[in-house]
Design a protein around this nucleic acid. Structure first.
Length: 918
RNA sequence: GGGCGAUUAGCUCAGGGGUAGAGCGCCACGUUGACAUCGUGGAGGUCGGUGGUUCGAAACCACCAUCGCCCACCA
């Protein structure tokens, strides 16, 4: 092995081998285990969130695969209708052409072409992340199979009356010219105004005052509403208003919706351009005046002067005209919620159009029940609340989009406008007995991207076919995803899964946090704070990073700021940390919280960990060259590390079961570094290097070294797959293990008989001993190379026994020159002291030790111990504590007090001695 | 307006009714035959505030403060 760990050299090579050998496909005949990848958008590239998510899923899949499950991690991508169409349209714009120039067919062809390039990029990234997905099953939401699933679901739901077409108010994106679902609209607070208008009564007898945030919609008003119990206006209900500018007579109506406390208590009603007004309009059978075009300019429904105006221009003009008419009462500053499309960021209009809807309530009911009953469990549990909250108030789902990229809606119209639904035109004709001469035209619209995503858990397994894969892998075990798509995706998969498969799509939903930047900001292109996971793996120099972050920006004026921030945060660019370090970082960040600040500082520590493991392996390999057969004796250190390994193994299983990758990462990190490397490797050296250790003992240690390392590699493999594979290839033959790859070896299981109290007690004693000596050395500034003589004062039988048996460890690891007993009654020499239970370790001073320094050191210990003692004895002095606390706690407290008292006595004696010396 | 979450060392975060933890950073020492991407020792916290429950609260409860997120039709 090379002297240092170089991830760039090994990661790609190893992945290629895994893939070539087909090891990502489900193996063996164990119980199935299945995770569906949340398909990334073909648009763009994988970001930190994907890398994080992939790390979690890969760890889970590898863990289960190693445990003998037939593990499937199903890969694939999403066609991402709007997002993809926008990207390709932008490309076309740059080429000086447009979607409309190309026409539908050519445009869609162009998108497919682009999808190949972009999808390839994502697949490459996924491979670099080490994801053990079964590429042979790679799917795309618009491939043939998924499309067949979409078609079947649409037709079936339609036949059952659960899909319908209707003219209603929808969220209309006037830039993209498409309807959006409620979820795709984001309401943001923006500063605006509240305009107060006078509406004259038709009787000529005064006016009412209405307030509005959208003056231009008054051109479409069809009523003014007041609260039925509002005495101020009860006499006016039933009378009419003359709508200014328009001249239309509109009624004054009474409706509960109106809040008499707000404004004047009068509300203008525009049924065709406001969701509330729409409902009121329906209740009161009001006419609906649609005054907008698809572009949100004013149409011919309005007075000539306003026709063709942009809605915002019209707003100003309406206000101006009210002012001129003397009907403008007041303009208030007011914060308004502006609905914007999540993709285009355009201000969305409520707009009357024909759209397709899924009647959601019959689907939502069983989906709610599935979570209530525990058939699906959210991890952490809290998220089920979020789920319920949305599901209880769910609205019908608008599934049609006026786009070209997506699944075309399987509906056809005849020339009379009758609609027929079927899998294709032939199917439609057959179902409806339509003659060949009836002209049919397919619906131009496509389906919401999430419609096909909702089918992902079974469409990828071959549905609507009855496949073996479906039998085997549906339902999946766990869905790993972010909370941001619980509504978009999780809820809809549950509904569709229950409806079409008769079972939940997965049993657990593991919700992870969002990756944010070092300041807690969401990573976004426009903020210029995105990190490409591959840059953390391969490294990137500062100039390239700046260039990357400022390239192709929509708002180029932000570039200087981004450049400045980038130079500040990454003055030297980003080092190459390798995939394993990145993954270990993600794992350790996978806590239960909501958002995760990604601090580049942390990844370095995990690269060091990899290097540590690498070098530990080198040491083990160097020392296990000759694993000869023969008698084998395990030393206390061997038995101790085996016991500790078992405890760690137990912890790993526990943490995986609870989806606590952070705790798993920490447990194995601590064991590897702080127990195996810091202690066991050091303790092994005396055995292997000293002449006095027997061949059997040496064999025992060699075996323990190699076996423990091999187990560590397997414990770590789901988290850091590459380095563990690379080392394992060297280690396995030494350990006498057959097998081509670590990824198909069994995950370590704990062993009930691994506990070894005696060995643990021995080694803990050794550790305390050595720590005591090191502390003296460190604080007394004694050179680490200087071997120290140690006298044991007041040793008991165990101490004497251990000192005799384990002296080699003390000498070599603790750099102790000699260990001698101070006979009882003998006056101890002036010495620095460490305490080990009842026993005192004395390091005679003889010029080695500075009396003042030792004094200061002991004083410090004394202060600490006295403080502890005060606390503990205070507790025991409280009779409530003694009477009420559990006996074990009281006993423990008494023991602590005794211990502190002993320590204080000993320290006092030592201080006394120093005084005598001075 | 509802709902959820966070507040622990300089930074990033675990923990959890009885002894305050890690990594990074910081200070000192160190070329010990795996590793300077390292080793050894050390400094550093009244666990956001107030009150309550309890023998005992950093942890449980209530309220408050600050920050954040989600949902919602007050024009």
């Amino acid at each position: 092995m090379d002297k240092s760990y170089r991830p760039e050299e090994l990661e790609q090579r190893i992945y290629e081998r895994w893939e070539e050998r087909g090891w990502f496909a489900p193996q063996g005949d164990g119980e199935p285990y299945c995770i569906m990848i949340p398909p990334p958008n073909v648009t763009g590239t994988l970001h930190m969130g994907h890398a994080f998510q992939d790390t979690i899923m890969d760890a889970l899949v590898r863990y289960h695969r190693m445990r003998g499950f037939r593990a499937l991690w199903q890969p694939g991508m999403d066609h991402a209708g709007i997002a993809t169409q926008m990207v390709v349209e932008r490309l076309l714009n740059n080429e000086g052409t447009s979607r409309r120039d190309l026409g539908r067919e050519k445009f869609v062809e162009r998108v497919w072409q682009w999808k190949e390039e972009s999808g390839g990029q994502i697949a490459r990234q996924t491979r670099r992340l080490g994801a053990s997905v079964d590429w042979s099953r790679d799917r795309f939401t618009m491939d043939e199979g998924c499309s067949a699933a979409v078609s079947k679901v649409f037709v079936d739901l339609y036949d059952e009356g659960l899909i319908y077409r209707g003219k209603r108010l929808v969220n209309w994106d006037p830039v993209l010219h498409t309807a959006l679902s409620d979820l795709e609209v984001l309401a943001e607070d923006e500063p605006g105004n509240l305009w107060h208008f006078r509406y004259p009564l038709a009787s000529g007898d005064g006016h009412l005052v209405v307030a509005t945030t959208r003056p231009e919609t008054m051109l479409g008003d069809s009523a003014v509403a007041v609260h039925p119990d509002d005495e101020r206006y009860s006499a006016l209900v039933g009378q009419e208003i003359v709508l200014p500018i328009v001249g239309r007579h509109i009624p004054i109506i009474a409706d509960d919706y109106v809040d008499p406390e707000f404004g004047t208590g009068c509300v203008k009603i525009t049924p065709a351009h406001d969701f509330n007004d729409y409902e009121i309009g329906r209740r009161h059978d009001l006419p609906m005046y649609n005054i907008l075009t698809d572009d949100a300019t004013l149409n011919d429904e309005v007075p000539v002067a306003y026709r063709g105006l942009d809605r915002f221009v019209a707003r100003e003009r309406v206000v101006e005209e009210f002012r001129e008419l003397g009907l403008l009462e007041e303009i208030e500053d007011y914060t308004v919620k502006i609905p914007r499309g999540d993709r285009s960021h355009a201000v969305v209009e409520p707009y009357l159009t024909d759209q397709w809807y899924v009647k959601i309530e019959p689907l939502a009911k069983p989906a709610i029940e599935a979570v209530e009953s525990g058939r699906i469990r959210f991890v952490p549990e809290n998220w089920s609340k979020t789920y319920f909250e949305w599901m209880y108030n769910i609205q019908d789902w608008c599934i049609s989009r006026q786009l070209w990229w997506g699944h075309r809606i399987p509906a056809w119209y005849d020339t009379d406008g009758n609609v027929y639904v079927g899998h294709d035109e032939d199917d439609v004709r057959q179902r409806n007995d339509l003659d060949k001469d009836v002209v049919l035209r397919q619906d131009d619209d496509v389906l919401d991207t999430w419609f096909s995503s909702a089918l992902w858990p079974f469409s990828t397994l071959g549905w609507p076919g009855q496949t073996e894969s479906l039998d085997e892998f549906y339902p999946g075990n766990v869905l790993v995803t972010g909370f941001d798509i619980i509504f978009f995706w999780v809820a809809r998969m549950i509904m569709m899964g229950l409806k079409f498969m008769g079972d939940v799509p997965f049993r657990e939903v593991y919700i992870h946090g969002l990756i944010r930047d070092q300041d807690g900001q969401k990573m976004s292109k426009s903020k210029g704070n995105v990190l490409d996971p591959l840059d953390l793996i391969d490294g990137i120099d500062l100039e390239s990073l700046v260039a990357k972050r400022t390239a192709g920006m929509m708002q180029s004026h932000l570039a200087p700021k981004i450049e400045q921030a980038t130079r500040k945060h990454f003055p030297d660019g980003i080092d190459a940390y390798g995939c394993d370090a990145l993954r270990m970082t993600f794992s350790s960040l996978a806590t239960t919280g909501r958002d995760i600040r990604f601090d580049v500082g942390r990844i370095e520590g995990y690269k060091n960990f990899c290097n540590k493991l690498w070098n530990a392996a080198r040491y083990v390999l160097m020392n296990t060259g000759s694993l000869d057969e023969g008698d084998l004796e395990l030393s206390p250190a061997d038995r101790w590390i085996r016991a500790r390994l078992d405890e760690t193994t137990r912890a790993m299983h526990r943490h995986f079961a609870a989806y606590r990758l952070d705790l798993a990462a920490q447990a194995i990190y601590d064991f590897t570094w702080h127990e195996f490397c810091d202690w066991y490797l050091e303790l092994s050296k005396p055995v292997l290097q000293a002449d006095e250790s027997s061949p059997a003992l040496q064999r025992g240690t060699r075996r323990t070294l190699i076996e423990t390392l091999e187990a560590i590699l397997r414990l770590l493999h789901p988290l850091v797959p590459f380095i563990t594979e690379e080392i394992w290839q060297q280690v396995a033959p030494r350990a006498g293990i057959e097998g081509d790859t670590i990824m198909l070896r069994p995950y370590p299981e704990s062993d009930e008989n691994a506990g070894d109290e005696a060995a643990i007690a021995d080694i803990e004693w050794v550790m305390q001993f050595i720590l005591g000596i090191r502390q003296i050395r460190g604080e007394m500034d004694i050179s680490p190379g200087k071997a120290l003589p140690v006298l044991l004062q007041h040793p008991d039988a165990d101490d004497r026994d251990r000192a005799a048996r384990l002296v080699l460890l003390l000498r070599r690891v603790g750099r102790v020159e000699s260990v001698a007993m101070l006979e009882e009654g003998t006056e101890p020499p002036a010495a620095a002291t460490a305490l080990l239970g009842e026993m005192r370790l004395l390091v005679p001073m003889k010029g080695l030790i500075d009396v003042a320094a030792e004094r200061a050191r002991l004083d410090k210990q004394m202060d600490k111990t006295r403080a502890e003692l005060a606390k503990a004895s205070g507790k025991l002095a409280n009779e409530n504590f003694v009477n009420n606390a559990p006996a074990a706690v009281v006993t423990q407290e008494r023991e602590r007090v005794a211990e502190f008292e002993r320590t204080i006595t000993q320290l006092a004696e030592q201080l006394q001695k120093l005084d005598e010396l001075a």
